[in-house]
Design a protein around this nucleic acid. Structure first.
Length: 231
DNA sequence: ATTATGATCGTCT
DNA sequence: GACGATCATAATG
């Protein structure tokens, strides 16, 4: 997709107003900002609605998941295990629930302050995993429902990774590596997919996406997996 | 290196 | 009252 090639202006609402499986891998490599801290996204997961038993929205609208049914490009924040505030970005048209869980990233701004606050953590671990990513970005319930498209405290900027899902689909035998998209500095983005982490239902769907060779990607139970045969 | 366990609380049954 | 889209620490091989 062309048109959003500025590294400064936020990805616009139409970027998110699409099927979540298209948006999720394209979000890899983007930068998410909150105050002085910025993180380059290296790992995400896609969650659907009524079609996805692993989704918070599977059983319909509740007070907690309401923003998942709302405006694409807004943030869905939930408390994980009573401890961690995790960050999602809502996708697909309003009225249809879907969101991308931002799981991991590499800190690219505000590093000094974060290092001082968590001196025992290696730099690559600061935003590794959804709990720690939420922590470095100061994600809390106050951000629930706010936009990442401008006009709010959070911004997502950068250059989308185009056509990532299409390339994943084109791989007939494995979900393995795909390459493409050389943006500036000749940095190739290699997208890999595998099962989502920490869920029981629909655990076989390879709806987790990450950038290969990225040390900030959380270690899940599986890496990339064989392509399940149809029928 | 891998595996087990406690923490902690909002949400839904 | 049970259950997590998790993480840090402790125990064990």
């Amino acid at each position: 997709m062309g048109g959003w090639l500025s590294t400064e202006s936020p990805y616009p609402v139409p970027f998110y107003d699409r099927p979540v499986l298209d948006v999720a891998p394209e979000l890899l490599g983007a930068t998410i900002w909150h105050g002085p801290v910025a993180v380059r996204i290296t790992e995400v997961e896609a969650y659907g609605g009524a079609d996805d038993p692993a989704s918070h929205a599977f059983r319909g609208l509740t007070p907690r998941n309401a923003v998942m049914f709302g405006q694409p490009g807004s943030v869905y924040v939930y408390l994980s295990y009573g401890v961690h505030w995790c960050l999602n970005i809502v996708c697909s048209p309003a009225g249809q629930a879907a969101a991308v869980l931002v799981r991991s990233g590499k800190v690219i701004a505000g590093l000094d302050g974060l290092r001082a606050r968590w001196p025992r953590l290696a730099e690559r671990d600061l935003a590794r995993g959804p709990g720690r990513l939420g922590r470095v970005l100061s994600v809390g319930p106050d951000l629930n429902g706010t936009p990442v498209t401008g006009g709010g405290p959070l911004r997502v900027t950068g250059v989308p990774t185009p056509g990532a899902q299409a390339a994943v689909d084109a791989q007939p035998t494995t979900y393995l590596a795909w390459q493409r998209s050389t943006h500036g500095r000749g940095s190739a983005r290699i997208v890999q997919t595998g099962p989502r982490v920490g869920i029981r239902l629909a655990a076989e769907r390879p709806w987790r996406f990450w950038l290969a060779e990225e040390p900030s990607v959380s270690r899940g139970p599986a890496r990339s997996v064989p392509h399940p045969h149809e029928g």
